[in-house]
């Protein structure tokens, strides 16, 4: 697969403290790449290395096949976790300034800003100062500034913090739209529900080491436990239970249905298939519910971090 960004064997330490230990990550072009990890794992350091804010001690980062060079910042849009704007500067002036720093001409920046401000319905903020706006409003401006120069790589560090659900959704849709228009997105977050919703690929960093990466589907597949959630209308629940126990592992289940039925999570052994379980169940009663238990990103995250 075509990778926009390839980091190989990147290490960085601050004095005694190792922030990144031999990290290699490939970000496929056109994907939303989730960079996950507990607090202090080294995510931000890694992102700063991509942005050339921090230089790695060793290792190499390739963008589009070339080692990173100072001009590449024009192709990167970065929304840091610690973000803010000049409080006493007017919204319009500020956005123009930041856009010009990214290499846009003043005219071009003004044109694009007008467009974006109309899109997000914030056109009348142009002459306001940031200190007059609410935090969520300032975040919107910040988002526009990040994407204005149409970078091919977008990096968002906790993009949804500070947004109410409506605006968070708006921003989520904008990010996905940018992806559809060809941008590649690196996305660092603790919020696992947004990982499920948005990410195609993830990498998990824990205590400066990468402990997991790949396509989200593949990872889920690898973490499947051959467990199925079943619902069965049967006359004698305890009989079904004891017969099931002879062949399979049982766990309590809790899902809502309209039937008063026998509910369990059933794990089958590697030698058996889902069909074996289905035929077994149908012989005992009427099967109303059969779903594979797919591990959530959250489960995988917690489990992997605990195991490492």
């Amino acid at each position: 697969m075509d990778n926009l960004l390839v980091a190989s064997n990147v290490s960085k330490s601050f004095g005694e403290f190792t922030a990144l230990n031999d990290i290699s990550v490939s970000v496929p072009r056109g994907s939303v790449f989730g960079l996950l990890g507990p607090n202090g794992a080294g995510k931000t350091t890694f992102i700063r290395i991509i942005n050339q804010i921090t230089m790695p001690d060793s290792g190499e980062v390739l963008l589009d096949g070339h080692p990173l060079k100072p001009e590449d910042i024009r192709h990167i849009g970065y929304l840091p976790e610690e973000r803010g704007l000049y409080k006493s500067m007017k919204v319009g002036d500020q956005a123009l300034y930041l856009a010009q720093l990214k290499g846009l001409s003043k005219q071009e920046a003004r044109k694009r800003l007008k467009h974006w401000f109309e899109r997000l319905e914030i056109g009348d903020w142009w002459n306001k100062k940031i200190q007059e706006l609410s935090k969520g409003m300032a975040q919107k401006i910040q988002f526009v500034v990040t994407v204005l120069h149409e970078p091919k790589l977008l990096i968002f560090d906790e993009p949804f913090s500070g947004f109410d659900p409506i605006n968070a959704n708006l921003i989520k849709d904008e990010i996905l739209r940018l992806r559809d228009n060809g941008a590649t997105v690196i996305f660092s977050t603790h919020r696992m529900e947004s990982v499920e919703e948005m990410c195609d690929h993830i990498a998990l960093i824990h205590q400066s080491n990468k402990i997991l990466d790949g396509k989200l589907v593949d990872i889920k597949r690898a973490h499947r436990s051959n467990t199925y959630e079943v619902g069965l209308i049967a006359e004698n629940h305890s009989e079904v239970e004891s017969r099931l126990k002879e062949r399979f592992e049982l766990f309590p289940a809790d899902f809502k249905t309209i039937n008063d039925e026998f509910q369990r999570n059933v794990r089958i052994s590697d030698s058996e298939t889902a069909n074996d379980l289905i035929s077994f169940l149908t012989s005992k009663g009427q099967l109303t519910h059969f779903v594979e238990v797919v591990p959530s990103a959250n489960d995988i995250f917690i489990q992997t971090v605990k195991n490492s």
């Binding site: 050339q52 910042i73 990167i76 970065y78 840091p80 973000r83 803010g84 704007l85 000049y86 930041l98």
Partner: peptide
């Protein structure tokens, strides 16, 4: 001011 308003990281992702 740039530190407390947290704009600094935005700026230095554009300039040295």
């Amino acid at each position: 001011e740039e530190k407390t308003s947290r704009i600094i990281e935005v700026i230095i992702s554009s300039v040295k």
